[in-house]
Design a protein around this nucleic acid. Sequence first.
DNA 1: CAATCAATAGGGCAAATGCCCCAAAAGCTA
DNA 2: TAGCTTTTGGGGCATTTGCCCTATTGATTG
Lengths: 213, 213
Amino acid sequence: MIKIALAEDNSFLAQSLINKLGLFDDFKVKFHAIDGEDLLASLELNSNVDVILMDIEMPNLNGVLATQEVSKKYPHIKVIMLTVVDDEQSIYESIKSGAIGYLLKESTPKEIFDSIHEIMEGGAPMSPEIARKALRIIQNPGGIEDDQVDFNLSKRENEVLKQLCTGLNYQQIAANLIISPNTVRTHIENIYKKMEVKNKAELVQKAYKHRLI
Amino acid sequence: MIKIALAEDNSFLAQSLINKLGLFDDFKVKFHAIDGEDLLASLELNSNVDVILMDIEMPNLNGVLATQEVSKKYPHIKVIMLTVVDDEQSIYESIKSGAIGYLLKESTPKEIFDSIHEIMEGGAPMSPEIARKALRIIQNPGGIEDDQVDFNLSKRENEVLKQLCTGLNYQQIAANLIISPNTVRTHIENIYKKMEVKNKAELVQKAYKHRLI
DNA sequence: CAATCAATAGGGCAAATGCCCCAAAAGCTA
DNA sequence: TAGCTTTTGGGGCATTTGCCCTATTGATTG
């Protein structure tokens, strides 16, 4: 039984989707959120969900931002973005935010069925055209303007970052850079603030994603 | 003028490719290497090349290993892999090694022309079918066989790894997977042993390097 | 010259981590 | 069935981390 949540502000479209999903025995719609905030609140209560069908345009918190939150906080949940248009910008934003599927709202029940099963088996359901665009985006982050985020790290902070990412602890980094562990700690705190992370794992991940190392 | 190098052991196919490329004015074939080693030797003398069309199967040093070397030593050079088959394993290996394009050997001159121009403009030329597979590979590394074999992580351990890499702590991971924090701790200890690391930062780094996430 | 920033360093403290120990249920397999 | 792995769960404990706080020195820069 695949547990599905729905985030869609248009109640007509939501009901249509629920009806389509209801045609299949192995789908269970756990809940239906009316916007991004509602979705996050609902997940806070119960995050035992496999797949979220997420409208890209919603009031309060849109699909892209909501997906960001979901994939950060509940990485086990797979997000399929719902949209009426398949423009490159939307695809780009969706993929960046962590969505792994992309469906047009007028999809047939069978297409939805296939997509959800594909995603549960580890696939990335999207049309070949969208896949092509997505791949280009993923493989060529240099071509995307806002991916080249500058965190404004100082020279020393970059050195500390590099060492931190190899798994060294404060003492070892201090020894390598011939400074005090307390200084290392200060540097790391500043790096955390600049890069908006709050622990090592997140930092290393972000550093790799943005090709800082 | 786009500078192209060719790495292809089959002289008949090589000549065919050179002929196809010769149809276009803005392509200049700088040299033709007969295997991976020959390619690296040639690049040692002259690395002023924009694109390498690389056969995936070559004696001495195959296309995947040669691409690894090239993208490590000459990151400005873009590699397009040539193949007769488009099996998932080949695509996976190519992407891992740093190739950003993937062409079937029977491609028409126009397809080759388009691909080379696309790669020069920052695209990732490949057929939609290949793009789909590649995307699945990139976005869902857990689905790739030999990644799991690498460190022999179990299914559950892979799930924990994924969550850990996003920066979640034991409690949050436990909540997401609906298990006890103690179990999460046990899993992580086992992952550490299997992957031969001793803290989160090292783990995240290794996971990224081996494209486990 | 004053202001800002980078780099240095320290204290305190709660929380998280890493590393031992152990054990049991479930599942597969030879 | 016996033996293996996986998944689950727990206790204890030293160390590390993350996050507050303050503070000095030197360089840059308007």
